[in-house]
Design a protein around this nucleic acid. Structure first.
Lengths: 153, 153
DNA sequence: GCTTGACTTAGAGCGCACTCTAACTTCTAG
DNA sequence: CTAGAAGTTAGAGTGCGCTCTAAGTCAAGC
């Protein structure tokens, strides 16, 4: 245990840059890392686990400000576990609805891709369907009421 | 049809601000909107559909630069449909893996919440399990090798 | 006509999350 | 011992996506 990783090794393992690791420490997301005699950082296994947890918060779009709050609670000891749990519960709720929103949008994108495919098909085969897709200004749509956008000021 | 909405009405309907709607038009995400005689914007139904599509791209984290590329292709007509389809396909692939990453992280957060719950339970019942959770520095962990971070320069 | 509020523009400013620079120290290989 | 790589700090700079300001015009009600 205590595998004393250098900052570059941690960067490689986590995908963060050394800059970012120092930045996170500076702003209190990561507690002060222990140092080698020369002053260089030596990351412990437990530091890695925490960083990986931070990455999960980041992946789920928690803003840094909230992560700081969470990190501070963690630093304050076991008595803050209920607060931490509540923070995570609230965050998780948001995350799940973000995922759902993305899923819905992804479905719409998929539908549009399929519309494009069928459009390419009809072009290739010479047929034409008149079938439009929401924001695609097919034939009759887009009457553009004159006005030619007289953008003079 | 042609329901000629004002910018504030569109803002209300889309959740964007009027600032953002003008900004999107300025940077070419939205084609020049037609104007009322006095120079004020009047949004058509077809504009709304396009804006809603843009919002789906935004929801799925497409950067504005790519949206601009897409908008430009769209403005260039039907011949760009294959390019647009390809853009969307590539984007969709990224989106699906982002969703998957979020889902995995959400699962880990859920597990942590449950760990916190059981921790609170054992505190309440006076028992204690010694069972740790990844980044939680339970009992023996965190030996913090002296050095007291001699941060002098 | 007058006021109030909604609209217009060009351009400046902001918050976030890094990312890098400069100047310096320390570690490692030869 | 020395060169070069890797580390250190404080603080400046960057890119993104808005967001707002200032100064002015236009629309609607009294």
């Amino acid at each position: 245990m205590e595998s004393h990783l250098t900052i570059d090794e941690v960067a490689k393992r986590t995908g963060l840059t050394a800059y970012t690791l120092r930045y996170y420490e500076r702003i209190g997301l990561i507690a002060p890392i222990s140092r080698a005699p020369g002053g260089q950082r030596r990351y412990a296994v437990s530091d890695m686990a925490w960083i990986e947890f931070l990455l999960r918060l980041r992946t789920t779009n928690m803003p840094i400000g909230k992560m700081q709050t969470f990190a501070k609670l963690r630093g304050a000891g076991d008595s803050t576990v209920p607060d931490r749990r509540q923070m995570l519960e609230e965050h998780l709720t948001e995350v799940l609805s973000e995922i759902e929103a993305m899923r819905r949008s992804a479905d719409a994108l998929q539908a549009k891709i399929e519309y494009y495919r069928s459009f390419e098909q009809s072009l290739a085969s010479g047929s034409h369907s008149d079938e439009g897709h929401a924001d695609e200004h097919r034939k009759p749509l887009r009457t553009r009421t004159g006005q030619t956008a007289g953008d003079r000021r």
